[in-house]
Computed example of a mutant assay.
Amino acid sequence: MHAVPARFPDDPPGDALAALRGATRAHHDRVDRLVDLPRMQDRDHYTRVLQVLDAFLAGWEPVVAAALGARWQPWLQARSRRAFLRQDLRELGAAPDAPARMPALAGGAAAWGSVYVMEGSALGGQFIARHLSHTGAEGRSAGSYFRGWGEATGGMWRDVRGLLAQELDTPERIAQACDAARETFDTLAHLLEGTLHERTPAA
């Protein structure tokens, strides 16, 4: 679900993006196993996944905004997909859960690592939306979150890739971002496990 996008031919030079992908692959796979794309055709499973995502974002957004500072808050607000989640939950007749408790992010580099996870998930959402639409499942009527920004998603991801190359410009900052990206995936995995009552091997 939070698929790490395949490498684009015009990925920015440098090690930041490759390091993030390599560092988080197993953690990302753990989240994908919990989301379980074939089960997303089941209304109850689909609803529970959306409730987890909404609770996660409700806790995540203020934490990452605080770590990045005022300069980046308009940028973050413009890219928030929480309104899509709330629309989907209303259509499903489901109440949102309380905001999840999120670990603090230790500075800007860590925040960009966490942003990488959530912005990458927007591309994964495009795949999920297409899959659910083709199967006639809930994604057709309550799939605003996964459809997200639609055709604009690719350009928004290119923007993020450029920012990662710009902001993660030293080995130390890359390492901090990788640690935070792994922790972001693991926090989401724990929330999914608790809600779906399933367990997966730790990354």
Rank of each mutant, 00 (worst) to 15 (best):
A129Y: 14
L68Q: 07
S80F: 02
A95W: 00
Q176Y: 10
A58V: 02
P201M: 03
C178V: 15
R173Q: 11
S144F: 12
A58R: 02
H45L: 02
Q41N: 03
L168V: 09
A175P: 11
G69F: 06
R81L: 01
P13I: 11
Q77S: 08
A104W: 00
Y116W: 12
S133D: 15
G139K: 11
H45S: 03
L68V: 08
Q166H: 15
R161Y: 12
R161P: 01
L85S: 02
L191H: 00
A106L: 00
A181W: 01
A203T: 02
A152D: 14
D36V: 05
V64I: 15
L68H: 03
R39K: 07
A55M: 09
T170N: 01
R25A: 12
A181N: 00
L132Y: 06
A177M: 09
W60E: 01
W75E: 05
L17R: 13
G162K: 06
L188K: 04
I128R: 01
R43Q: 10
G113H: 02
A98P: 04
D186Q: 12
T200R: 11
H197F: 07
A180L: 01
G120K: 01
Q176E: 15
R25H: 12
L68G: 00
Q73A: 09
M156G: 10
A152N: 11
V49F: 06
D169G: 05
L34H: 10
A83Y: 06
R25C: 05
R25S: 05
L68A: 01
R130F: 12
A18L: 08
D36N: 07
T200N: 03
A19E: 11
G194L: 03
R81C: 05
L163W: 09
A19Q: 09
R161E: 13
P5C: 11
R30K: 06
D179S: 08
V115I: 15
H190T: 13
G113E: 10
D44M: 06
R101C: 04
P74N: 01
R161F: 04
Q41G: 14
A142N: 10
A189T: 04
L57F: 07
L196Q: 04
L132H: 02
T184N: 10
Y145W: 09
G143N: 12
G155M: 15
G194Q: 08
I128V: 15
A16W: 14
R161T: 10
P12N: 07
D54G: 00
T135P: 10
A106D: 14
R30I: 03
E138V: 06
W75F: 03
V31Y: 04
V64P: 07
